[in-house]
C-alpha cells in the first residue's frame, strides 16, 4: 500500500470531523423520527461532533434513515442515496430500519434498509434513543478513523 500524502490525510481528518446529515423517513411510524429530531436539539448538541442537519442530499455525508422500506419509498430512497456525493454513509435508525422489524414479510414492505442501500451502521431500538443515535455516529466515525489508520500502517 502506497503511503498517502498529507492532503489525503487532511481530507480523511476533515471527513471524520464534519459529518453532515440528512434525515429520511422510509416508512417509519414517526417514533424514530421524533427521536432523530430530539437528538438534533440543543440538549444533545450534535454540533460538538461537527454534525449539521442539511435539507438537500447534495450537501449531506450521512443519510439517517428510519423505518422499514415500503415499496412506495424504495425508489425514492434509492434516488436520495444516489443524489448524495461520494463518500457517503447510511445509518439505519430503529429496529424496522435494521431488519424490517414487525413489518418483516409484510406484503408492501421490502424489508430493512440494507435491502435497498448499503448500510454503515445499525441502531436497534423501538424507538432508538437519541443517546443511541449519537453513540452510533461516534462509533461510525471512530471505525472510520481506525480503518484510515490501518491503511496508513
Amino acid at each position: 500500500m502506497a503511503k498517502r500524502n498529507i492532503i489525503e490525510k487532511a481530507i480523511d481528518w476533515s471527513r471524520r470531523k464534519s459529518p453532515w446529515i440528512i434525515h429520511f423517513n422510509a416508512g417509519a411510524c414517526n417514533g424514530c423520527d421524533i427521536e432523530v429530531v430530539d437528538a438534533l436539539t440543543p440538549r444533545y448538541d450534535v454540533e460538538r461532533f461537527g454534525m449539521l442537519l442539511k435539507g438537500t442530499p447534495r450537501h449531506a455525508d450521512v443519510l439517517v434513515c428510519t423505518g422499514a422500506v415500503t415499496l412506495q419509498t424504495r425508489d425514492r430512497l434509492k434516488r436520495i442515496y444516489e443524489q448524495m456525493p461520494e463518500p457517503k454513509f447510511v445509518l439505519a435508525v430503529g429496529t424496522c430500519a435494521c431488519s424490517g422489524g414487525i413489518f418483516e414479510d409484510c406484503y408492501c414492505v421490502s424489508g430493512g434498509m440494507d435491502t435497498v442501500v448499503p448500510v454503515s451502521a445499525y441502531i436497534p431500538g423501538c424507538a432508538a434513543r437519541p443517546e443511541a443515535i449519537l453513540d452510533a455516529v461516534v462509533k461510525l466515525l471512530t471505525s472510520l478513523e481506525k480503518s484510515q489508520k490501518a491503511i496508513d500502517n
Partner: peptide
C-alpha cells in the same frame, strides 16, 4: 457546547 475551533476549516476541507 458548540463546535470545536477547527470546525469551519474541517467543513471547508471536507
Amino acid at each position: 457546547k458548540g463546535p470545536p475551533w477547527f470546525q469551519p476549516l474541517a467543513d471547508f476541507i471536507k
